[in-house]
Each structure stands twice: as C-alpha cells, then as structure tokens.
Nucleic acid binder design. Structure first.
Length: 278
DNA sequence: AAATAAGGCAACCGCGCTCTC
DNA sequence: GGAGAGCGCGGTTGCCTTATT
C-alpha cells in the first residue's frame, strides 16, 4: 500500500519536474534577443504591465523612445503592436458574432485586404485579429458559400493598382468613402451594441488617462470617453495635457524596474492586477 | 501514451506614406 | 525638393493548442 503511494508520489514529482523543464525550455525558446539587445517574441505579463502602466500614465508620445522610458527592452514597433492589438482598452476579444462575420465578408468584398479599413468598421476588433479570423475561418466559409474566386484577387489587383495611383482610404481624410464616414459617425454615437462585450479584456477596465499622439481618428479617441472612471475625467487630468504636447523638458522620467509606478498600487487601481493575478 | 497534423493566433518584417527639417 | 525619422499597414512566420492516428 505504502509502496503504491510512494510510487504514485514519485511519478507525480517526476511529472512536475518534467513540466518545469519543459516550461524552462519553452521560455528559452520564446525569449530571444536580437543583435541590438532588444527582446523579441512573446510578451511577458511583467512587460505588459510596464507598457500598460507607462502608456496609461504618459500616453504614447513617441513609440521609438517609449520603450526606453518605460523600462522595456523592446523596439518601439513591438510596443506599439502590443498596445494596439492587445493592451489597448476597448479591445473586444473572443468569438465573432454572425453580424460581425457577415460585415467582414461584405467589407472584404468591397475593400479587399484592407484590414485596417475593415477594422475601422468593427469597433473593438483589431486589423490583425480580423486578418487572422479571415484566414482561418471566413475565407473557407466564403469559398463554401460561393464558387467565385475569393477576393484575395482584390488584394492582388490592389497591389497592381498601388503602383499606379494608390488611392489610400483614410478614415478621416477628405477622400473618405461615404461608407467609412458612416461607420465612424455611427461608432462615435454611443448607441448600444448588439454584440457581446462580455469577452472584452480586463484591460477594458483601465482608465486611459492620456491620449495617444498617434491615435489620429476620432474613432480611436471614442473609447476614452467611456473610460473616465475611476480616476476622473481624462480631459481634466493635469498631467494629461502636459504629456500630450510633451515638450522635451517635460519628458517623463525613465522608469526603473522597481519604479513605484509598478509596485502594484497604481495598476491595481486600474484593474490590471486582476488580469495577471498580481 | 506518444507522434503527427491541422488550426489558431501573436508577433515580426518590410514597404510605403506622412511629416518635419 | 530631398533626406531622415516615425508610424501604419499587410503579408508572413512560427509557436502553441487541439484533434487525430
């Protein structure tokens, strides 16, 4: 009996050791560094917290400089991508509704692979997410629905057109298509959505207290209105205005790894702690 | 239980555009 | 007008998870 218990305990420990080893190997594989000592690969929760804390507090005044001030060993591009696709408030995650899928298919027919333009019409969805969803699900679904060649041909056509005229659709440019203008105005008006928002990230609870200099469209700013709580109106926060124009003498302080910003108090107040179980 | 295949998704890369000097 | 910096976008890659053998 005791022998059985011991052997069970042994195998349990062996399993745990194997899992630990595997996890260590996985981390070693995913944490790679490029020539310039900049980290690449998967983002760790700590990095997410740093980036979130920094952007939340100071805004994204310069993506290239940001990692240095935020205490991150990442390139600015990587930080921007992480913020835009994952950490930004109002990112809707989880399953797509039938309406959303239909919208994507319809827009893809008319716009081709202009994922950012398509994303502009789907509040809370990122271009990257839509692109992935298209390639994994919708493309097949559409192929099933119709025998016509799918609109990836449109992207080929677009590539060819690009060289000629390249009529880039900018959601806020004067040349904006009526369709997109309509979508933006509708996304700005606070009408209730029929889609399920329960799957939104906890980051949605974060009050973004600073505006991002590169969030050019009103559509992007719209989310800020919804996130005034719990620390007051973002437009009246004293540090907000300072940092938006960010004169060089007011550059935010470099965050050291044990910055008070990251000691949990601030982040917890934004609901970040729950997300990572801090 | 282990090996393999397939699907899903996060992240990287490179190109091109815009803005500033 | 040209050069350089910064940013956004779309294509692609590669890791991770799940399903199948």
């Amino acid at each position: 009996m005791r022998g059985k218990l011991n052997s069970a305990k042994d195998s349990e420990e062996k399993k745990r050791a194997r899992d630990t080893e595997r996890e260590r190997e996985r981390m070693a594989r995913t944490l790679c560094w490029d020539k310039s000592c900049l980290k690449k690969g998967k983002w760790t929760p700590e990095e997410d917290l740093k980036l979130m804390a920094y952007v939340t507090r100071y805004g994204c005044w310069n993506w290239r400089q940001l990692p240095k001030y935020a205490g991150l060993s990442r390139c600015g591009k990587s930080c921007r991508l992480r913020w835009m696709n994952y950490l930004r408030p109002n990112i809707k995650r989880g399953n797509y509704t039938k309406e959303e899928e239909d919208t994507i298919i319809r827009l893809h027919e008319s716009l081709g692979n202009r994922w950012s333009a398509i994303a502009a019409q789907l509040p809370g969805r990122t271009d990257n997410e839509i692109k992935n969803h298209w390639h994994t699900k919708l493309k097949k679904r559409k192929q099933k629905d119709t025998v016509k060649p799918d609109s990836s041909d449109l992207s080929q056509r677009r590539k060819r057109q690009k060289k000629d005229t390249k009529p880039k659709i900018d959601p806020i440019s004067p040349g904006t298509t009526p369709q997109i203008i309509e979508s933006i105005s509708s996304s700005l008006s606070p009408k209730p959505s029929t889609s399920d928002f329960s799957s939104s990230t906890t980051a949605n609870n974060i009050a973004v207290t600073s505006s991002c200099s590169d969030l050019k469209s009103d559509d992007e700013f719209a989310f800020l209105e919804a996130y005034e709580a719990p620390i007051g109106n973002i437009w009246t926060e004293p540090f907000l205005a300072d940092n938006y124009y960010m004169p060089s003498e007011f550059l935010p302080p470099l965050l050291d790894p044990v910055s008070p910003l990251l000691d949990g108090e601030l982040l917890c107040s934004y609901g970040v702690c729950e997300q990572y179980g801090v």
